[in-house]
Design a protein around this nucleic acid. Structure first.
Lengths: 241, 241
DNA sequence: ATAGTACACGAACATTTGTGCGATGTCAAG
DNA sequence: CTTGACATCGCACAAATGTTCGTGTACTAT
């Protein structure tokens, strides 16, 4: 299951819910979704919403207005794709007050999507739907890189301790399918069905995911390149004490 | 303006909104609030909600179901006492001035005031944020609700490398005159006329400022307590790669 | 006393908003 | 060609939900 496996409408719906929820602090209605995604019938939105619920990408409270919430950790798992043009996913939507508010400010709003294992990778990231604890906002000069497609994860485990990334830290990643040797990346390992935070190293057709911890308990993970999918590259680390 | 200045109903309403939003991931309706707080009339809830909006403690979207959201930074400012029954954030805090002049947006704006040495002297930390070289914005849950003014500094030097604070990192500090043993603090050393970033340790009348670097080049600084002034305590570390 | 203000109540009202259902189009399997 | 799962559309309906308004009470200032 990958984000791109979803229908275009479902992808748009997810992106819209994320953008809307982030800027409004409450979820959108069926009609608001329909208007934005270009679905005239509320029942079609409802239909797709139910599909997304089957995939556990959202959860719904029936008969409750705006009774839905994103399962952001799961979204991160399947590789939510951000809007290319605007970089910032939050301004992906047009015609909303949100985008207007966003357009004039040179800020990066970054969702904290969930946790990532740095250590013994955990099979499935335990997830609660939309965690309101999570979004951070940085201003222009704070990030040097082309601003775009950013998301954040909370680190679990100590495998990257030598890279000064500790258990509990938040890493900000730039969403990308490829990365260079030496980059710290979030990688999905097919077969193992797990995501982990490691240094990337390529050797021929093999990909080495290198921990940064001298303890022998942490060993490199070596896999064929086609069994590893890069979710993003770490561009920033944040720690709360 | 303090939290306890609000009417009991308004206090209850705020606590309920917080509890409800936390557990449902969307805000409550007027009637849900009324039921919980013990208000039979929806108009009374509406009335009090409008009051709270005047105080900028919440923001509302008119004619929108569940169209309200808490202004957490402002809430922290006025010292919201959380409900023990609901578990979270049970500690009573006496919030003081934070930097939340942008009340509608529910964000913490943190000025980056300058550099701090891990071994080098730097100028005083101004009590009035002026001419920051930049600023960072974090939102609501990113920081455990601050009880004081926040500011940020850019780290120079490697004396705290063992604490995973590297050269070039940005540390966010909470302004306070005192700190506990083990806290990482920015301290002004009288006589030396310099500010430095170190771990704090008290021993009798002496204050030890401990580096976190095994290299013998970095030595603890030991001074009489009255020669050391704490400028703030590190609550967060940010690193850009 | 009189007027004014803040707060509260309840009921009627007007939207907003989720749900249900019949009809249509597509496409691949039988 | 027929069948049937998918996905879509439009529309009617009912429930959920914000708004308005007339009334009442208590307290304050004039």
């Amino acid at each position: 299951m990958h984000f791109s496996d979803l229908s275009m409408r479902q992808q748009k719906i997810l992106r819209f819910i994320l953008a809307f929820t982030t800027s409004h602090h409450y979820p959108p209605t069926i009609r608001e979704i329909g208007d934005e995604v270009g679905i005239s019938s509320t029942s079609v939105v409802n239909y797709n919403l139910s599909k997304l619920e089957d995939f556990e990408l959202i959860s719904r409270d029936r008969e409750v207005s705006r009774g839905l919430s994103l399962n952001l950790p799961r979204l991160a798992e399947i590789g939510l794709a951000f809007d290319e043009a605007n970089g910032n996913y939050a301004s992906a939507m047009d015609g909303l007050a949100a985008s207007a508010e966003n357009a004039r400010s040179h800020r990066f709003r970054i969702p904290v999507l969930g946790k990532i294992a740095a250590g013994q990778p955990i099979p499935v990231i335990p997830s609660e739907p939309y965690d309101p604890e999570g979004w951070i906002e940085l201003t222009e000069g704070m990030l040097s890189l082309p601003t775009g497609r950013l998301f954040a994860l909370r680190v679990q485990g100590n495998s990257m301790i030598d890279a000064s990334v500790l258990n509990g830290d938040i890493v900000i990643l730039q969403q990308q399918e490829t990365a260079n040797n030496g980059d710290m990346v979030a990688a999905w390992i097919e077969g193992d069905e797990e995501t982990t935070l490691k240094y990337l190293r390529r050797e021929g057709d093999m990909v080495h995911l290198m921990p940064a911890n001298p303890n022998p308990e942490y060993q490199p993970i070596v896999r064929p390149a086609d069994k590893v999918r890069i979710n993003g590259k770490v561009v920033s680390v944040i720690r709360m004490l």
